[in-house]
Design a protein around this nucleic acid. Structure first.
Lengths: 123, 123
DNA sequence: CCCTCTCTTTTACATGCCGTAGAAATATTG
DNA sequence: CAATATTTCTACGGCATGTAAAAGAGAGGG
């Protein structure tokens, strides 16, 4: 899967957090408002990364409206799941990895994992 | 964490699969033997990637022996766990991600996950 | 002690990704 | 149609990676 640069990541975070599709100008403003960075990027910069994200299949663009509007093509969670599966690979050592992973999580999370597993079983 | 290029990845795979530390020449030969690629890289190429992997903290080098010998500094599984945690990030939506992830795994794997969780609980 | 052989370090270059944005083309609107 | 907004094209610097030649360094034979 495609890994993201810092700016690409920031843009995706904004898109994921937005209920509505956003324009490049929206994103430029939101990026400037982030932190105390006071970035103030050029709009063309934002458009470039949006085009790249679109090519990577991470965002979809509405070309019908005039300021084009962009939205994430899948949820942040689904994207992260994709990353997880990438990291796990098609390898056969998945179980060994999962065992170690679970060994490192908090008891709380272990409990919710168990709950999730149970709900899946019953389904 | 550091992501790996194709050649770096191949080298790490060989080191992970080897019980013994390997020399650059060993690795060059092993790489050439991989698949039907018939790569036949220069040894300096292998040394360069080994130096980079060492800088990334992924391999350790024995400088005492004359052909230096290289070994992975952590197991493949531990490395993958690191990748998983990177992918999960420090985000707050870990549970949502894990829920989706588990929804996508095979029943077999769900069963072994449950077993792993149970063994952790009892520990 | 020097030569040669082997091994390591240094330096280099091409490619591709990413941040960044000006210039040019195109659409909107008054 | 002219001015303005929006998008596309083109570009460049930096960094990671694959690739390796060139140069430096240690070690044994003569």
């Amino acid at each position: 899967m495609a890994s993201l640069g810092d700016l690409e990541r920031s843009v995706m975070d904004l898109l994921w957090d937005s209920a509505e599709p956003l324009t490049a100008n929206d994103l430029r403003d939101d990026l400037a408002a982030l932190g105390t960075d006071a970035k103030e990027l050029a709009v063309t910069t934002v458009l470039t990364v949006l085009a790249r994200l679109e090519k990577k299949g991470l965002v979809e663009r509405e070309r019908t409206t005039r300021p084009h509007r962009y939205a994430a093509s899948s949820s942040r969670e689904d994207h992260t799941v994709g990353l997880l599966n990438d990291a796990l690979g098609t390898a056969q050592d998945r179980e060994a990895v999962l065992a170690r992973f679970i060994g490192g999580i908090s008891p709380d999370e272990a409990a919710s994992l168990r709950a999730i597993l149970d709900s899946v079983k019953s389904a």
